[in-house]
Every structure is written in C-alpha cells, then in structure tokens.
Amino acid sequence: MSNRIPAERPVIEGEDEGHERRSYVIGLVLALALTTGAFAVVWLDLLSGVAALAGLGLLALIQAVVHLRYFLHIDLQRSHRDDLLLILFTVLILLIMVSGTIWILYDQHVRMMP
C-alpha cells in the first residue's frame, strides 16, 4: 500500500517522528533509572519495613506515571477530557477496592485463631 500521508500536511508541534522518538528514549532512560533505583534499595538494604513499602511504592508510582506519559502518551493538556475522566475514575475505584480489601482483611485477621 502506498504511503497515504499527504505531502502538504501541516506541521503540528510535537507531531514529528524525531520528537516522538525522543519521548520514547526519555521514557526508557527514566524507567531504567527508577527500576535500578528500586532494586538497589533492596539489594543494598537501604530501607526496611514500612519505610521500604513507602519508598518502593513511591518509586513505582513515579515509574507508572513515566510509562503512562512517555509510552502510552497520556497527556493531560491535550487529551479529550471526558474520556480521560472516565479513565481516571478507575483510579478512584482501584483505591477503594484495594485499600478497602486490605483494611477489612487485616482487621479481621487480628481476631483469627493463631
């Protein structure tokens, strides 16, 4: 199939291959750094217990945002807002379900026979 891209198409800021390539490379570098950081925390025994959970959780959160931004191209400024809202609503549901489940199960567990 021939290349159907019109030759005279207007140039849009951020819509060229070089720019998008850079975005993937930035994503990869950041993700590599964050991943290595997270593994280093455990390998080098930098944190333990609750501090480990908080630190690792924070790194994971940042990395997830990096993936969403640079690989999945989620873009708060230019995205279709209604659609994005529904997607972001998922975050609320996830929080309710995960935190609720953990809260309930740990609360019940205290009363279990050893």
Binding site: V41, A52, L56, A60, L68
Partner: peptide, 20 residues
C-alpha cells in the same frame, strides 16, 4: 499497560517481599 502492571508486581511482590 502490561508493563505498567509489571511495575506493581516487581515492586510489591518481589522487592517488598524480599525487603520485609
């Protein structure tokens, strides 16, 4: 998206599993 899910797995399953 599967890669994003994997972030959760290596962090909370493997890393936190070993750290705690």
């Amino acid at each position: 998206m599967l890669d994003v899910v994997w972030i959760g797995i290596f962090t909370f399953v493997y890393l936190y599993g070993v750290a705690s």
